[in-house]
Design a protein around this nucleic acid. Sequence first.
DNA 1: GCTGGACATTTTTTT
DNA 2: AATGTCCAGC
Length: 789
Amino acid sequence: MNHATEYLETRQKLFDKYFGFLNAAQRSAVYCTEGPLLVLAGAGSGKTTVIVNRIANLVLFGRAASDKRVPDCAVELLPAMREALAHGDSNQVREVLRRCAVEPVFPYKILCITFTNKAANEFRERLYATLGEGARDIWAGTFHSVCVRLLRRYIDRIGYKNDFTIYDTDDSKRLISRILKDMNIAESILSPRHALALISHAKENDRTPEDESRDTLRDLHRSRYCEVYARYQKQLRAANALDFDDIIMLTGRLFDEQPEVLERCRSMFEYILVDEYQDTNRSQSRLVGLLAGSKRNVCVVGDDDQSIYSFRGAVIDNILDFDKEYPGAKVIRLEQNYRSVGNILKAANGIIANNADRRGKNLWTEAPDGERVHIKRFLSQAEEAAFICDEVASAVASGAKYSDFAVLYRVNALSNSLETALARRRIPYKIYGGLRFYERREIKDVLAYLSVIANPADSVRLRRIINVPRRSIGDTTIEKIVSLAEEKGATLFEIIENASGYEGLQRVAPKLERFAGLINGLRDYSSAHTLSETVRRTIEASGYIEMLAEEDDNSEDREQNVMELISSAQTYEETAEDRSLPAFLNELSLVSDIDSYDSADDAIVLMTVHAAKGLEFGTVFVPGFEEGLFPSAQSFAEGDKGLEEERRLAYVCVTRAKKRLYLLHTGTRLLYGRTETRQVSRFAGEMPPECCDHSARDGAAARTAAPSAHVSRHSESRQAFLDNIRRAETKPDSAALIPAGRRVSHPIFGQGTVLSASPMGGDVLYEIEFDNGNKKRLMGNFAKLKKLD
DNA sequence: GCTGGACATTTTTTT
DNA sequence: AATGTCCAGC
């Protein structure tokens, strides 16, 4: 064997040794450094590990794992390589491989885009463990955070100011509502919600108001919407604000219009990784393409079966057509699951196999089958909640940790009944989602003050707080200010500052000027004090905290939340590089709830299935596994597409569980003030029967029928509760499953034995062998079957 | 300009 | 059921 061949082979073996903790597919993803790469990573297949090690490989060894050239120094390196291969530990192998490195990549040349900030931090932490200090320089963040960083530097080139503020959905909605009102468009014609959705979708496809009106001039409805969009965009600009979609869209525009900026970014990011690619929208995938340029060093990781955000513009085609977009792309499938037990995986595969629009993938595991998936029926949600509490309590009594359990539901509204049940049983729980901290009114108000202090041009935030607490500045005054501002081409704040100089404002001028004085005073204060001091001062000087104290309900909670904002400013001060107010606001505008999820807290976790993406738990409970809820009734209207997304959601949900999974459904459920009869989700019938364990808790009613004192506080709801149970008892639910082997009787066919029972779309398909030898397939709801003993 | 009561609205959610 | 939003009347 010549030296060249031996060098290449030994080097390969060293790589395999160094990355020996990965499986073959994972390793090939790590080794593939050049050109477009699509990693189809099934749930629990070690996706994060692959991304982290792929980056580590780039930084440590460059292209060595795939390079076919033999360096001049090969002969000198060989002895050390042989030695390391035979006897070396991981560190030695690493050192030798470093000497074989081919153009190792500077960390700051790597861009790693994730779905949430939390994921970005996770990557950073894990990279830090392998790479040390160098890991800091990697560009890891969400599309939004990365784009904001770029825009802060370059957006002035396309006519915005670099110190722009970011509007969240709530701010955008306020702005839209006002525009609709100005245009005299009734809510019934175009709701703010709908308008916002239309605008958002337009932006997700990089369409400007002009683009939108060009194609849709004929339709009166649409042309009014175009006008709304145009005004909205104009006003954002006047307020020096960007909404979330602008952040992406304008980065694209920046690249289109400023080739030298694009060129600079292209050379800045030599390697691009995008996680959760199935949840990107058009505008985002276009950005990736622009940045990749002709080098095309793009690695996208994702799972088409876990695409659950199409309702907000994610296009599953991005991942389905990746190799068309990037011809010659290498595709690697990660199908070995390291998370779940066999039965859970089979159930998940069974569900997702019913989708047509997918690349196809089959997860497998070396783990044993484990427990079967428990599908349980209850009479009421109170019982369902009691069951969850019982299971958790008894598991914890025998040594389990609360944090091993999660309750995942389709809609936030389901958390209520669980919350009370858990609280009553003193089971520690944490709820994610619902009303987020930064979306609370009091927090948004204080942040609005801070925003106006930082950027007085921010008219949406200004209007939010100008009369909170009450300063006797009403709508009429504000309208006057707005029209004056338009007339003079000034901002609202400029008019307010000089109110006594305008005729129509004489009467309220002192109030307005006092307000302007407050804001200006706080700005001066902030330039001489720390961030948290500024926050505290703002809360006090504005009279906001006093106002809260005088409110009747929740005033204590709200005060506490506001105080917590001060401590979050403090934390920020201790950790951040840029401790300015604008930087703090910028940071806050891009954080979410799930970012604060910490699996170390010992509490059971309650969240929506969407929020649970990427997480895993020993035991998962899914209450409300019912038709109309999961899949949601709304999804039916969208046809197959809607249903397929619900199915992917179910798939995500099932694959969160490691060892044990409970899919729970009830006969009646109280939701949005209505009590409805419900049937088990059709997805229950899509799982292979042999890996499921169906049961209906008949007779369990007695246990919960006598509600505790806590419930009977509301005599009405207690009455309804009891009524429901009575109703359910007098009309035994025909959908309650009759297990195989049971004897049944049918009015026409006589007696027989159940051969199989498979739930189907809210009903059960029975295969029955009757005593006369006939085999029949009957639907449970139609065939009037009676159970025999 | 403020207040209280009628009224609707209620998927999923990051940024 | 619960909550926020809107509008009429003070």
